[in-house]
Design a protein around this nucleic acid. Structure first.
Lengths: 140, 140
DNA sequence: AGTCTGATGTAGCCCAGGCTACATTGAGCG
DNA sequence: CGCTCAATGTAGCCTGGGCTACATCAGACT
């Protein structure tokens, strides 16, 4: 039942997961900004504060770091827009999210739970696993 | 293709994911300690340092927090053992890990990648999704 | 006994992601 | 014109998870 080995490979995996965590926030932000731009035509600090349920200060600081990474930029009107890199990331992110949700739904998971689980999982799936999920969806 | 709504529910999900992250380390530690105890009969700071590839200081601090949460306890000989709560968590954790790996393998994901992805995903799956995966495995 | 080495622990630093409390700024309105 | 209020920004603090550098401490081996 157990079979897992306490190997040195665990260290590499552990590091990979930590790195993924540091990317999650950036992905969540570009995804949210992309959605806000589509729905409301603008993405401001206050909007994002509402989305994530954190203080406006946390939003500002997060945006600063994400701006430094070249994913978003300020507009003249005080809002935020996505750079090309940001747009690409938002698109991939949204597609991946959709895929994971559809996959979970096809397994019989309820809609709300599929959304919630996808939110957590989506940053930890390799291209290989995503392809496998896609193939599975197409094969049914 | 998009369809996602920037709802207030996003805030709740976001918070849930953050909480999961704070639990991940604890789960990883009890899981590793469980495996070490099985394989070597002891779990010391140095062993865990090797497992996770971090400094012994990080291990000590993590263990301190985990000890405060009642998951592990010091042995007379200087090592660590699992409390009943810790044992239960380690067991669930290991079973869940196994399940996720088997599930990914059954989708056709390669063994190494399944291991790696499971490591990241396993902390973000609800009981409902895990059940769905189990059902899927049994139905084939 | 003395020394050397591995394991453990402490002090103190960094960064990210939270927070509250306090400024500033600008738009709308009486 | 001036007031108010919402949005934004700054200062400064907390926690968790990293780190290096420096102390112990115990056992092994001359």
């Amino acid at each position: 039942m157990r079979g897992r080995t306490v190997s040195t490979k665990a260290a590499a995996r552990h590091n990979r997961v930590r790195k993924q965590h540091s990317d999650e926030l950036a992905e969540d932000y570009v995804e949210a900004i992309g959605a806000l731009l589509e729905e409301r035509g603008q993405a401001r600090v206050t909007d994002l504060q509402g989305v994530f349920g954190v203080s406006h200060v946390s939003v500002i600081r997060a945006l600063k770091r994400i701006e430094e990474r070249g994913l978003v930029a300020r507009t003249e009107t005080g809002g935020y827009e996505l750079t090309d890199t940001g747009k690409a990331m938002a698109e991939t992110s949204a597609e991946r999210h959709e895929l994971v949700v559809r996959f979970l739904l096809s397994l019989g998971v309820s809609s709300g739970q599929a959304e919630a689980d996808a939110e957590g999982m989506e940053h930890h799936l390799s291209a290989e696993s995503l392809e496998a999920m896609k193939a599975f969806l197409e094969s049914r």
